[in-house]
């Protein structure tokens, strides 16, 4: 099996309002995000850039995570799911993004800061080191 990635830059759209949720939703369909999901800026000034929202009645705290300089966030779509593991797969590039909202259940301080940690460690410390050409 091989994976083919289509990167047609002319078709690339800028993604608006990406939300990374702290829960798994057993579905993969269109969601009425703007009608049901209404993040609010917190009233406490001490917590700048912190948003509050709710999902299914549970309290969420959100933080904007910026994609580090020199990187770009990309969204791919697989238009046709493979029937077997041996089949070739094709991914089409659809959107790009430079930030997303990371949501935590209740509070960021009560949750594992998984995404932000991984994102920063990888891009700041490792990726460049292992991918840069070695000069003699």
């Amino acid at each position: 099996m091989s994976i083919k990635v289509n990167c047609d830059k002319h078709l690339l759209l800028e993604a608006s309002a990406l939300n990374h949720m702290p829960c798994t939703i057993d579905g993969n369909e269109k969601a009425n995000v703007s009608t049901y999901f209404r993040p609010q800026q917190t009233s406490q000034n001490s917590l700048k850039n912190v948003l509050r929202s709710s999902f299914r009645g549970r309290p969420l705290e959100g933080k904007t995570i910026n994609i580090p300089d020199g990187y770009v966030g990309l969204i791919f779509e697989e238009k046709r799911k493979p029937f077997s593991e041996d089949e070739d797969r094709t991914l089409d590039l659809t959107h790009s993004f430079d930030c997303f909202q990371q949501w935590y259940l209740d509070s960021q301080y009560l949750s594992k800061n998984t995404v932000q940690g991984a994102c920063e460690t990888w891009t700041r410390h490792i990726a460049a080191a292992i991918h840069e050409p070695i000069e003699e």
Binding site: I25, G27, E29, A31, N32, Y36, F37, S54, F55, R56, G57, R58
Partner: peptide, 13 residues
């Protein structure tokens, strides 16, 4: 709503 459940008029709890 299949994803979000109910409007904010409802007590989910």
């Amino acid at each position: 709503d299949p994803v979000f459940g109910f409007p904010n008029f409802v007590r989910f709890s």
